[in-house]
C-alpha cells in the first residue's frame, strides 16, 4: 500500500475500525514511512482535540417529561383518527 492509498484507510485505522488485513498493511507502512506516520499523528491529535472540547448539552430540566407526554398525546390522537396523517415518509 502506497502513501496515497494509506490516506483512504487511515481514519478506519485511527478509530480502530480497520479489519485485520488492513491493520497489518497500515502498520507496516507507517513503520517505514515517517511522513505518513507524522501526518497520521497530526490528524489523531486534531481529532483528540475536537473530542476533548465536545461537551454534552444536557436536555433541559423537565424536557424529558414534556416531550414524552406530548409524544404519547399525539400518538394517541393519531391512533384514534383525529390527528395528522400517516407516517409513511418517516425515514
Amino acid at each position: 500500500m502506497d502513501c496515497r492509498n494509506i490516506q483512504r484507510v487511515i481514519y478506519e485505522f485511527l478509530y480502530g475500525e480497520a479489519d485485520e488485513r488492513k491493520l497489518v498493511t497500515i502498520k507496516a507502512h507507517l513503520d517505514k514511512c515517517q511522513e505518513c506516520k507524522k501526518e497520521a499523528e497530526a490528524i489523531a491529535s486534531l481529532l483528540r482535540f475536537i473530542k476533548s472540547g465536545a461537551k454534552t448539552d444536557p436536555v433541559p430540566e423537565g424536557a424529558r417529561d414534556r416531550m414524552l407526554k406530548e409524544i404519547h398525546r399525539k400518538a394517541t390522537t393519531v391512533k384514534t383518527g383525529n390527528g395528522a396523517a400517516g407516517d409513511e415518509d418517516a425515514v
Partner: peptide, 12 residues
C-alpha cells in the same frame, strides 16, 4: 425536533 423524531419512531 427531538419530539418529532421520537413520534416518528413510535408511529413507524
Amino acid at each position: 425536533l427531538v419530539q418529532e423524531v421520537f413520534l416518528r419512531v413510535y408511529k413507524s
